[in-house]
Design a protein around this nucleic acid. Structure first.
Lengths: 369, 369
DNA sequence: GATTTACTGAAAAACGTTTTACAGGACCGT
DNA sequence: ACGGTCCTGTAAAACGTTTTTCAGTAAATC
């Protein structure tokens, strides 16, 4: 109800000191007599004073704001990353601004501009495209940022991503061990670095095993077209014995396409999905999947960004985290008999985060097909 | 790279005018000669000037920030609402700050305090508890806010929610039409108004049909305990023929509990879920569910909040939106023969948003059991 | 005992805007 | 010619902080 919020001046007057002293007491930037400090603190508390962060951070130059720009706020993978980051930063008195680029380069640009006008302390962005041309906006503004997930290395900026090739390898190896040889890789869009790497990892292992090079199908970025394309593809091609979905949406697409075609899992088709969600277990044949370490992801992003905010001017770093294969029932041994699930879960639980300086920057991985 | 961002003073100097004039040109708050205005705009564009929103909004008093406080950022329902709101507000040059209360009253309070320090233009909050005692913080700050989802009416504030009773009725009626009489209602926590209302709606319809009053099971707020409690309950009670999950997490819990017990859907148990997600269709027996109108939800929240920000001082409004029953295969007719699905989808597609002033405020709905 | 040093806190400048107050014309009607 | 009203733009105040500068006192050093 009280229209004007209580200001530092009010506190100062009531406490009989100068505003500067109140500031020094509250921020602790300059020492002030213990007794007086206590008094000021008490008055501030009594008045319910809350420092106006707008004003405070106008003066100090940077806002305690971390902006997170994602390509799709309706994709639970991205929101889970936002959640993980929020958990980290809120403990250090930062606030999070979210923006949605809708996988569109133009809106990405405009959202980025709007966000930069807040002079945020840092930005984490999951680019809408691999090249991320809108980077120039951030760089011109001189705001620290890290690129996450989709772009796995960049000569200009820190990147945090998953060990994509390794993830692809894990999935493929699991299928090979189960006897599969004709494997379909379902990626969202090969224009994305992480997709190329996952496919490359899988393809390498598969070919190394002497199996035919896997086919790669691009299912697009949304769920709806994913299942559609999958269905169409299944109609027009010799049927593989296993499919790896390299994205949560593609996994969902694979699953519904199989339902539509009446192809049963795992008897007629083995499936490995990406990401680990509750619904994967809420089925009679729970889904074997590659789990991305979301919490660690968020922490790694924040820790990198934090360093930059604190003034780290070292060369761009590339951080990547290992995924984990969660063996369940949707990938089964091939052969005359029915499903036989394996539980060769050798996931390396600890030490799943590595950092490396980047001498090797810029060497993109070729698509697997 | 340029360390100091270009300020309005720089533009003014280069354009040969005063800072005030630049401001007037850019904000359009006072008229300025057309030619001069164009010139200023050009200079501003050349210099890549972007007004510092911190400074701007310090002066004007309120930040173009909408804070969204949700109980669980890992729950896709809540994040989908955030996404819907973000879509609305970003078009009007507002930015969204998200905060996670983690379903805990204390962290809710501290997050709220942190958020209020930004002097946001408005707040939308999905309270962690029904009573929402932390409301006092917002009210003391005098910031407009709307309460969403969980609390469906409040004498002090606008509420936007779903037509919960109606939703419960729809689900129950569908099951009754399919011949079910012993129905279990799975709610998250009956301390939440929306849960009580959904249960009440279902219970009323069921009892009106002469069927025994339905049992209500509280499954808790997280997925893990949900399935656990469900499993335990199923062991200790006579088995119903149908279950309604009144939350996406409880639905997931129901589904996995049934999987664990080897109870098949819909042959041995019919299930109606809540919310509409992709995974519900990615199964051989897709899930019949109550869909909440997420987009409309976000729009209604924003429109209400917008009005308040613009100075609407009318009495608190209660807005509620109708849900839709999506008939699929997980709820089947009971009887000697196997599953028979109905497609009696009479959902009222249009006119699913209503507003009403609140003379009836404060009359809570009783829990259904 | 004089001079430095250390400490404490007040006063004022600064951050980048917006807004208010005002000044200088031009234009109008008398 | 004169006072009034527009019109357009400048100068300066203001927003609520933090930071810098400085003054006054007490302690320490010679």
């Amino acid at each position: 109800m009280s229209d004007k919020p209580v200001s530092i001046r009010d506190v100062a007057k009531k406490a009989g000191v100068s505003p500067g002293t109140v500031s020094n007491v509250l921020t602790g930037r300059k020492p002030v007599n213990k007794d007086l400090a206590d008094h000021v603190r008490k008055v501030a508390a009594d008045l319910g004073y809350q420092t106006d962060r707008l004003a405070s951070q106008l003066r100090t130059g940077k806002a305690q704001i971390i902006a997170v720009l994602v390509p799709d706020l309706d994709n639970p993978f991205f929101t889970s990353i936002v959640a993980a980051i929020e958990g980290c930063v809120s403990q250090e008195n930062y606030e999070i601004i979210v923006a949605n680029s809708n996988d569109d380069e133009e809106t990405e640009r405009s959202r980025l501009a709007a966000i930069l006008a807040w002079r945020p302390a840092g930005i984490v962005v999951i680019p809408s495209t691999d090249r991320f041309p809108n980077r120039d906006l951030i760089e011109r503004a001189g705001v620290p940022y890290v690129i996450a997930d989709r772009v796995t290395h960049s000569p200009q900026a820190d990147t945090v991503s998953v060990a994509n090739e390794e993830a692809g390898e894990m999935a493929a190896r699991h299928l090979l061990e189960l006897g599969h040889r004709r494997i379909l890789l379902a990626a969202s869009v090969l224009g994305l670095g992480n997709m190329r790497e996952r496919c490359a990892g899988a393809a390498r292992v598969i070919e190394a095993a002497g199996a035919p090079a896997p086919e790669v199908l691009e299912t697009g970025l949304t769920f709806d077209v994913a299942s559609e394309r999958l269905s169409k593809w299944l109609d027009g091609h010799e049927r593989p014995t296993a499919i790896i979905g390299f994205t949560n949406f593609t996994t969902l697409g694979v699953l519904t396409a199989l339902v539509e075609r009446g192809i049963r899992i795992p008897h007629e088709m083995s499936v490995i999905g990406f990401d680990d969600y509750k619904w994967m277990c809420a089925r009679s044949v729970p889904i074997t999947a590659i789990r991305q370490p979301i919490q660690a992801f968020g922490q790694a992003i924040w820790s990198r960004l934090r360093n930059r905010i604190d003034g780290d001017t070292g060369p761009p770093m590339r951080v990547y985290l290992s995924c984990e294969l969660i063996v369940r029932a949707s990938a089964a041994a091939i052969g005359p008999k029915g499903p036989r699930t394996s539980n060769a879960n050798d996931g390396n639980e600890q030490d799943n985060v590595r950092e490396m300086a980047r001498p090797d920057a810029g060497t993109g991985v070729k698509p697997g097909a």
